[in-house]
Amino acid sequence: MSWLPDDFVHPVHVPLPGGRHHLRPVREADAPLDYPAVMGSRERLWTVFGPAWGWPAATMTFEANQADLLRHEKEIAAHQSFNYALLDEAETALLGCVYIDPPAKAGADGEIAWWVVDDLVGSEVERALDALVPQWIAADWPFEQPRFLGRGISWTDWLALSAHPDA
Rank of each mutant, 00 (worst) to 15 (best):
T47S: 14
A90N: 07
E91L: 06
P56H: 02
R44K: 04
K74V: 14
L23S: 08
F82R: 04
E63D: 15
G54L: 07
L70H: 03
Q80W: 13
N83F: 14
M60D: 07
H79Y: 13
E73K: 03
S81C: 14
Q66I: 00
S81I: 03
E43G: 09
G18V: 05
G54K: 04
L86E: 05
V38D: 08
K74P: 14
E43Q: 08
S81G: 15
Q66D: 04
R27W: 07
R27V: 07
W46N: 04
L87S: 12
D34P: 11
E89N: 09
H22W: 05
I76H: 13
E63Y: 08
Q66W: 00
M39D: 03
V48C: 09
F49D: 05
L23F: 12
A58R: 06
L70V: 01
A58E: 08
E89T: 09
Q80A: 15
F82H: 12
L86C: 07
A29W: 04
L69A: 06
A64E: 15
L33A: 06
G19S: 02
A90C: 07
A67G: 07
T61V: 01
N65E: 08
A57W: 05
Y84K: 00
E73S: 11
A37V: 01
L45S: 11
R44P: 09
E75F: 11
P32A: 09
R27G: 11
Q80Y: 12
Y84D: 03
A67P: 04
V38Y: 06
F62A: 01
T61G: 08
A77I: 03
R20C: 10
A93V: 02
P25I: 00
M60A: 12
L70F: 04
G18D: 02
P25E: 04
D34G: 08
R24D: 14
L45R: 01
Y35A: 05
E75T: 05
D34H: 11
D68N: 10
A85E: 01
A58G: 12
A31S: 04
G50L: 00
L86R: 02
R20T: 05
P36Q: 07
A52D: 09
R42N: 11
E75L: 15
A29K: 05
H72F: 13
G19C: 02
R42Q: 15
P25M: 02
E75H: 13
M60L: 15
S41Q: 03
A93K: 05
L23Q: 07
A78V: 08
H21Q: 11
A64K: 06
A29F: 11
A29G: 11
A52P: 10
H79I: 03
F82A: 07
H72Q: 13
D88N: 13
R20G: 15
T92H: 05
A52T: 10
L23W: 09
A67I: 02
H72S: 15
G40T: 01
H21V: 08
T92G: 14
V48P: 10
L70G: 05
D30R: 00
H22Y: 12
A93W: 00
S81L: 13
P17W: 06
R20D: 13
L86Y: 06
G18I: 01
G18R: 00
R24M: 12
D34C: 13
G50I: 00
K74N: 15
